[in-house]
């Protein structure tokens, strides 16, 4: 378990005091994938570096499995870091070493005997799907392959925690999903706790269990991915959530829909998890006899199943039955909003 308790990081520059991290408290449970999302400059890079103490906090405490990280000596800290893997946006591989040697370095640092290293490295290369690339240099690899080397290196010493610093931000969408699949796999197979910072909501929705939203050094919202998607409270969270919907601005979508359907009612339905598999809309139409037309739809896949947002139109002829429809949908577990 990773616990941050009232952690702050303050930088002093000649002209001003910067609160990069401002009184942040977070608890990350074992075996979960925890996302920290925020725009650049929100302080999320500093937060992730506080976990392995690449940055030291100005005040507050960082505990990993109950150990106060601040109290460790340099030697103890180095030993602890061996069990905390980290991957980076720009991979940070050594260009002068082959794929094999890059991964081996992590084992060398952990004082693993030379005889045991080869087998371990080959296992890792297999795990990340880079067989045949052992003796290539990083310059001969694509971005996705480089990140796979980074992942193999981070996993070399069987860590309990994997920190991902914008690990997919430098990759194209397809490669991003492949890397996310790999991380998800690793989380399932090895039970490693994964902490990832990102500015891409798709990343959070695809693999995270819980998420914290950061802005100006503070955590402004925290919860399960499902909750955050369904009930974003803070303006910034709403921006992130809407960034995943097909139209970037939800309000824009609303005005255009209202223009297209000046009469009748527009309702927004939120489907999540299991219920998105049932034929709810068809059932409601059959039971109530109301004709409902779908005018805009958007489905995002997430760890807890698909999250669907439907905009539906009910013509004036059925207006008196609106309440019946809404109640029926609510009974099925759909979140309904009449707009």
């Amino acid at each position: 378990m990773i616990e941050l308790k009232n952690v702050s990081k303050i930088y002093h520059t000649p002209n001003q005091i910067i609160r990069a991290v401002d009184d942040v408290s977070l608890t990350i449970k074992d075996h979960e994938i925890f996302g920290i999302i925020g725009f650049s400059g929100a302080g999320k890079s500093t937060v992730i570096r506080l976990i392995n103490q690449l940055e030291t906090q100005t005040s507050g405490e960082v505990y990993i499995d109950g150990v106060n990280m601040k109290e460790l000596s340099l030697k103890q800290l180095a030993k602890k870091r061996i069990k905390i893997g980290m991957i980076f946006q720009h991979f940070n591989l050594m260009w002068s070493k082959t794929v094999f040697q890059n991964i081996e370095l992590a084992l060398e640092i952990a004082n693993v005997k030379k005889e045991d290293r080869k087998e371990k490295v080959m296992k890792l290369i297999q795990l990340v799907g880079l067989i045949g690339k052992e003796y290539s240099y990083p310059s001969q690899l694509s971005g996705g392959q480089k990140q796979r080397v980074g992942i193999a290196r981070a996993l070399a010493n069987d860590p309990d925690i994997l920190l991902c610093d914008e690990a997919t931000s430098a990759l194209d969408p397809q490669t991003t999903f492949a890397i996310l699949d790999l991380l998800n796999d690793i989380n399932h197979k090895l039970g490693i706790t994964i902490v990832m910072i990102t500015h891409q909501m798709e990343v959070v929705s695809k693999i995270c269990h819980r998420v914290a939203v950061m802005s100006e050094g503070k955590v402004i919202e925290e919860g399960s991915v499902q909750d955050i998607f369904q009930h974003p409270k803070h303006e910034i969270t709403k921006v992130f959530v809407s960034s995943v919907s097909s139209t970037s601005e939800v309000s824009d979508l609303m005005t255009s829909l209202k223009k297209m359907y000046p009469t009748g009612h527009i309702i927004r339905l939120n489907f999540t998890g299991d219920i998105s598999n049932k034929a709810i809309l068809a059932n409601v139409m059959k039971h109530t006899g109301v004709e409902i037309s779908i005018i805009n739809a958007n489905i995002t896949s997430s760890q807890q199943g698909p999250i669907g947002i439907l905009y539906c139109h009910i013509t004036e002829a059925f207006c008196n039955q609106l309440d019946v429809v809404v109640n029926h949908l609510k009974q099925e577990g759909v979140i309904v909003e009449v707009l």
Partner: peptide, 10 residues
């Protein structure tokens, strides 16, 4: 970044 990565490896 490479140096940071090695620090992070312990």
């Amino acid at each position: 970044g490479t140096i940071e990565a090695c620090k992070a490896m312990g």
